[in-house]
């Protein structure tokens, strides 16, 4: 009786059905709330997504309700698994993901110390690796829950899921602080610090990561030159100049002892500009690319100049 899709309209016939229905309701609400939070999060962080989300608001809500109903129905259909699952110990061990995070960060620091050019890759791999470690742990400790709830929780916030499960014997408000507030604050600080690091800190030697927004080049730089010894530069070289705090990618038009003239291309659009910068006026680094790298850009540059 309870295993049909209209389970939420059924009255429980006895205490066992009341128990399994309450679990089904809880899981359905978890899916619903997690979906709403996830949807709002996506809307908040993706620029211009509001237009899409408002246009599809009705369908999105219908989809979430349908998912939550299915989650509840699956709970009722798998009653044996549910009653069996609640008997297992549900306090996850955090040793593996925490140690993995520290080990990956240490490895990243070692890699950057060995070769500063690996900064972006090492940090990205460290964060990705620790995320995978936490997600895998969260996945293994959420077996009692439905697939929808597991996917949502593990993908959106594995650390919060683990903390929520681990600290299950404290007051609810403390649990919210430990599982939601603290991880959010730490994530915000880490995100802000990494953005600030990549945006404002002086670009280290050999680092060609976020130098040219929108530029898809995968070529490695040839050499790093002291801007005060620009004799190593030649006309037509593709280079990145770090002027003050702003890296600019472009083709060198002319070189002299004091001036470097270059044409910049911004994100391969029609928005182009030419300007001259004084080598004594704040160029902190020059990264020159190999002669064949970005050959098309060079032709484009010459076409533009013609």
């Amino acid at each position: 009786m309870l295993k049909n899709i209209l389970w939420f309209a059924c009255e429980p016939a006895d205490e066992r059905e009341a128990l399994i229905l309450s679990i089904a309701y809880r899981r359905a609400m978890t899916v619903l709330w997690a979906g709403l939070v996830g949807g709002l999060f996506v809307t908040a962080v993706i620029p211009a997504f509001e237009t899409i989300s408002f246009a599809a608001l009705g369908q999105a809500i219908e989809l979430l309700v349908a998912l939550s109903v299915i989650a509840g129905q699956k709970t009722l259909a798998n009653e044996d698994l549910v009653f069996k699952a609640v008997r297992v110990e549900r306090r996850p061990a955090m040793f593996v993901p925490v140690i993995a995070t520290f080990a990956l960060l240490a490895a990243a620091m070692l890699a950057v110390w060995y070769d500063p050019g690996l900064l972006f890759v090492a940090v990205a791999l460290a964060f990705l690796g620790s995320y995978v470690a936490f997600a895998a742990t969260a996945w293994s400790w959420t077996k009692p829950y439905t697939m929808h709830g597991r996917v949502l929780g593990v993908v959106l916030a594995p650390i919060s899921v683990l903390a929520w499960l681990r600290y299950d014997r404290i007051a609810t408000w403390k649990r919210v602080v430990v599982a939601v507030v603290i991880p959010s604050v730490i994530a915000s600080v880490a995100a802000t610090a990494s953005v600030a690091f990549f945006s404002f800190v002086s670009v280290p030697s050999g680092f060609v990561g976020p130098v040219a927004p929108g530029y898809q080049s995968t070529e490695f730089h040839r050499t790093i030159l002291d801007p005060r010894k620009v004799g190593g530069l030649h006309e037509g070289d593709l280079a990145t100049f770090v002027v003050g705090l702003d890296p600019v990618y472009g083709t060198v038009r002319s070189v002299s002892d004091v001036d470097v003239c270059m044409t910049t291309y911004k994100q391969r659009t029609t928005e182009t500009e030419s300007f001259c910068v004084n080598a004594d006026a704040g160029i902190s680094k020059v990264i020159v690319y190999p002669p064949l790298a970005g050959l098309a850009d060079r032709f484009l540059s010459e076409d533009f100049l013609r």
């Binding site: 016939a13 006895d14 205490e15 066992r16 128990l19 009653e79 044996d80 009653f83 069996k84």
Partner: peptide, 22 residues
């Protein structure tokens, strides 16, 4: 006992823990 047959099955297979009243 005033319950469903499914509850008796679950009780006999020790898949469900009854309330004190039951």
């Amino acid at each position: 006992l005033g319950v469903t047959r499914q509850t008796i099955i679950a009780l006999e297979q020790a898949k469900y823990q009854p309330s004190l009243e039951l």
